[in-house]
């Protein structure tokens, strides 16, 4: 009961408080939501199916580039471009996933191959003039046009990413109680045993891959619209892949709220470290590295795992 109350209160605050926040905090909150969203998308494949992708930047980049190119070249609204990017990313995810799973890549080998796929896309983007090569693409500043995913001020962007994050959390919650969710967890715990019990491991993992890459791509479009600038290393670089994974691992991989909790902890930590040591690039990522080491060492199941392992009160 207490958990529901706290959840409801937190949700209420997230809905009502932002208009009264100073711009700086609103920006941080948008970052929290975006990273939480990316973490939730990664979590479906990494947390539930136990397939640790190190290359989710591939889908993020496909989403960002598809909607931006469709808009700049053909004038298609990014709202539609977003869906197109998601479908394209899911198709690429299915392709990469089919190859990897079909040939039995597991554990670290899967991580390495996903990293390689993302890096290949980055190299292609850098070397393709038609997509702006290493200079990237700028979405020219215009009048606010909600139809074209352009808003005045930051607040509307906040509500968009809040809705996306709540959507991802809702999907994860549905997933957790579905046949797919149970199958994925069975595969994560012991793939051979799951297959022996009749779970179609390849099909289930591919479904997780498609869903996870589709959602990640939507995040890419949001990023492109919010910052109005993308380039190959921002969108396809390893940093994006690590961001998503980090939120989920720190918050608790394979839990519904883990990635969002992770983002609420990590983003302020990164902001604080940057504020404490000014003018030095890299401080925040250095702290991320340290946090990752500490979390793996002392809270291997993340913050949510730590919370739920404390003496049980009420239902778990």
């Amino acid at each position: 009961m207490a958990a529901e109350l706290a959840g409801g209160l937190a949700l209420g605050l997230l809905l009502v408080a932002p208009p009264f926040l100073p711009a700086y905090f609103l920006e941080i909150l948008i970052s929290v939501m975006l990273f939480g969203y990316l973490g939730a998308a990664w979590n479906i494949l990494g947390g539930y199916a136990g397939q640790f992708s190190f290359g989710h930047a591939a889908y993020f980049g496909i989403g960002a580039y598809t909607s931006t190119l469709l808009f700049l070249r053909l004038g298609v609204t990014p709202w539609l471009g977003m869906l197109a990017g998601g479908v394209l990313a899911a198709a690429f995810g299915l392709f990469a996933g089919y190859l990897s799973f079909r040939y039995g890549l597991r554990g670290p080998y899967f991580s390495l191959v996903t990293l390689a796929f993302a890096e290949m896309l980055r190299v292609v983007a850098v070397n393709t003039k038609a997509v702006g090569s290493s200079l990237g693409l700028v979405i020219p500043s215009r009048e606010a046009a909600p139809v074209d995913f352009v808003f005045a001020g930051k607040l509307p962007y906040y509500y968009v990413i809040l809705a996306m994050t709540l959507g991802a959390v809702w999907i994860t919650r549905r997933l957790e109680r579905s046949k797919l969710g149970y199958s994925l967890r069975a595969i994560r715990e012991n793939e051979d045993a799951a297959e022996a019990s009749g779970v179609d491991a390849l099909g289930m993992k591919l479904r997780a891959m498609a869903l996870s890459s589709f959602l990640t791509a939507l995040g890419g479009t949001f990023y492109a619209q919010y910052f109005a600038y993308i380039d190959p290393s921002i969108t396809f670089g390893p940093a994006v892949s690590i961001q998503g994974l980090l939120q989920a691992i720190v918050g608790g991989a394979g839990t519904v709220l883990g990635p969002v909790v992770g983002a609420f902890v990590l983003t302020p930590v990164s902001e604080l470290s940057r504020a404490m040591i000014r003018g030095r690039a890299g401080v925040d990522v250095m702290v991320y590295g340290l946090v990752l080491i500490l979390v793996i060492s002392f809270l291997p199941n993340g913050l949510m795992g730590w919370v739920s392992r404390r003496p049980a009160r009420g239902r778990s």
Partner: peptide, 29 residues
């Protein structure tokens, strides 16, 4: 962490890489 899950050991070295690389960036730009 030698008994930790395989993927967690992988993440451990990833964390180490992030830490060392950005330590160098902080110290020497």
């Amino acid at each position: 962490n030698r008994f930790a899950a395989e993927h967690n050991q992988l993440l451990l070295t990833l964390g180490l890489a992030l830490f060392l690389e950005n330590l160098a960036l902080v110290l020497w730009q």
